[in-house]
Computed example of a mutant assay.
Amino acid sequence: MKLADWIAGGTRPELNGHRMFVRQDGDGSPVTLVHGFPTSSHDWATTVPHLVAAGHRVTTLDLLGFGQSDKPPRHRYSIHEQADLIEALWEIWGSVRPRWSPMTTASPSPRSCWRATPAASPAPPC
Rank of each mutant, 00 (worst) to 15 (best):
P108K: 11
R57W: 08
V31I: 14
F37C: 06
W93Y: 07
G94V: 08
G26I: 04
M103Y: 06
Q82P: 05
A83P: 00
A116R: 02
H42Y: 15
H18F: 06
P72W: 01
R99C: 05
G26N: 05
G10F: 01
N16V: 08
L61H: 01
V52L: 13
P30W: 15
V31A: 01
G9I: 05
E81Y: 13
S101Q: 05
A45S: 14
T60P: 08
A83T: 10
S121W: 12
S69C: 08
W114V: 05
Q82Y: 03
S109P: 01
R111M: 15
L33R: 00
S101W: 07
S101L: 15
V34I: 15
F66N: 00
E81I: 15
D5M: 09
W100Q: 07
S78T: 09
R76A: 10
S112M: 15
H80K: 09
R19S: 00
G65S: 08
T11M: 12
R99V: 05
L61F: 07
M1R: 08
V96W: 09
V34Q: 01
V31F: 06
P125R: 15
T105I: 13
R97I: 12
R23Q: 11
L51P: 02
T60C: 08
T105C: 13
R57N: 02
S40Q: 10
E81F: 14
D27C: 12
G10W: 00
M20Q: 10
A53W: 10
G26M: 12
R97S: 12
G28Y: 07
H18E: 06
P110H: 07
S95I: 11
H35A: 06
T60D: 06
T105S: 11
S107R: 09
D43K: 12
R19W: 05
L15G: 00
P13F: 00
I92H: 00
T117V: 12
P38G: 13
V48R: 03
G9S: 13
A45P: 03
D5P: 01
D43P: 08
R76V: 10
I7A: 04
S40D: 13
W93A: 07
L15K: 00
F21M: 04
M1Y: 14
R74K: 11
S69N: 10
F21I: 02
H80I: 10
A4M: 13
A123R: 15
F66M: 00
G17S: 05
T60K: 02
D70C: 02
M1A: 10
G65P: 05
P72R: 03
T47S: 03
V96Q: 13
P13K: 00
D25V: 08
D25I: 09
W93M: 06
A88C: 06
R74Q: 11
V34W: 07
E87C: 04
A53Y: 09
I79Y: 03
T39K: 09
H80T: 15
H42F: 15
D84T: 08
P118F: 02
V52T: 04
W44A: 05
G17A: 01
I92D: 04
S95Y: 11
I92W: 01
P49V: 02
R23F: 04
I79R: 01
R23D: 02
L63H: 03
G28F: 09
R23L: 13
T39F: 14
P98S: 12
D84V: 10
H42T: 10
R111K: 14
P49T: 03
I86Q: 05
L89V: 06
T59I: 10
F37L: 15
G67W: 02
T47L: 06
L64I: 02
W90E: 02
L15A: 01
Y77F: 15
S95E: 15
H35V: 09
